[in-house]
């Protein structure tokens, strides 16, 4: 069943048109990779879907579980199960990582009519997920992303995803700046999240990540449009030939 249906999406950033008519359909259980050269609009797509206020939708529709996603606030989208792993996770000094995540989880649970978790239940959940993702528990008691290395920040994003259990996860260049070990850890985390109920969109510049997170569908963005879609073989082909090949053939 289609979870996310994007039709003719146009997005401007600071008045400049970036996305110029995206059509994309993602079903539960699928992993889609969005690839493309720098400036093609990959990250813009991720941020527009999460409702970033700087990304202005000028045309098109996005339906999420049959509802108008674009009419929803960022927090409403999050509570309905849309999660974005940030390319540049922000630091929030003085705010305890675990506390932050508990507040987020309980906001989502409350929205769903579930009971809020108390500190003890939450800690149990944290421990379980931390073990799963091989996260050092000391990271949880530090301030949100403050003083984290690039790799720690990205792993923290995946950890948050694991705790919040979204229906639709969007990974915005989560692989950038990761060494191969960190990349594997992040990929393992994402793979552990794969499920028939969940859709995952992986935005990436490099094929490398897709060695570890094997996508069902690969889309190539260029000039704000999807110029080619295919299966995993497309990603490998890109690796071989580079993006230039597509831009000329498009």
């Amino acid at each position: 069943m289609t979870m996310l249906d994007i039709h003719n999406l146009h997005v401007r950033v600071g008045g400049k048109p970036i996305l110029q008519g995206i059509d994309l359909s993602v079903s539960a259980g699928e992993v889609h990779a969005i690839m493309g050269p720098n400036g093609s609009g990959k990250s813009t797509l991720a941020r527009a879907l999460s409702g970033h206020p700087d990304y202005q939708v000028t045309e098109g529709e996005v339906s999420y579980e049959g509802r108008d996603l674009l009419a929803m606030d960022p927090e409403a989208r999050a509570r309905e199960g849309v999660f974005m792993a940030f390319q540049y996770p922000v630091e929030i000094p003085g705010v305890n990582n675990a506390y932050f995540l508990k507040a987020a989880l309980n906001a989502i649970r409350k929205h769903r009519g579930q009971e809020e978790l108390d500190a003890i239940e939450f800690m149990a959940l944290m421990r379980e997920k931390a073990t799963l993702l091989e996260i050092d528990p000391s990271m949880l008691s530090r301030s949100v992303n403050e003083g984290f290395s690039g790799g720690e920040k990205k792993r923290n994003e995946i950890f948050q995803m694991a705790v919040l259990e979204p229906k639709l996860a969007i990974l915005d260049e989560t692989d950038s700046g990761l060494d191969i070990d960190a990349l594997k850890l992040v990929a393992n985390g994402v793979n552990a999240m794969r499920s028939p109920e969940r859709a995952i969109i992986v935005v990436t510049h490099y094929q490398r990540l897709l060695d570890y997170i094997v996508p069902d569908v690969v889309h190539v963005l260029s000039g704000g449009r999807i110029v080619k879609s295919g299966d995993r073989a497309l990603a490998l082909e890109l690796e071989d030939k580079g993006y230039g090949w597509l831009e000329t053939s498009a």
């Binding site: 927090e75 929030i92 003085g94 705010v95 507040a103 987020a104 906001a107 929205h111």
Partner: peptide, 27 residues
């Protein structure tokens, strides 16, 4: 603004986000 958006993307309202950031500042 990026801090606030980050919190909202995790499901917190803008108001809760501001409170959270302020409380971190005062910790």
């Amino acid at each position: 603004e990026d801090q606030i958006f980050y919190c909202r993307q995790r499901g917190l309202s803008t108001e809760d986000a501001v409170n959270l950031i302020v409380s971190g500042f005062c910790r």
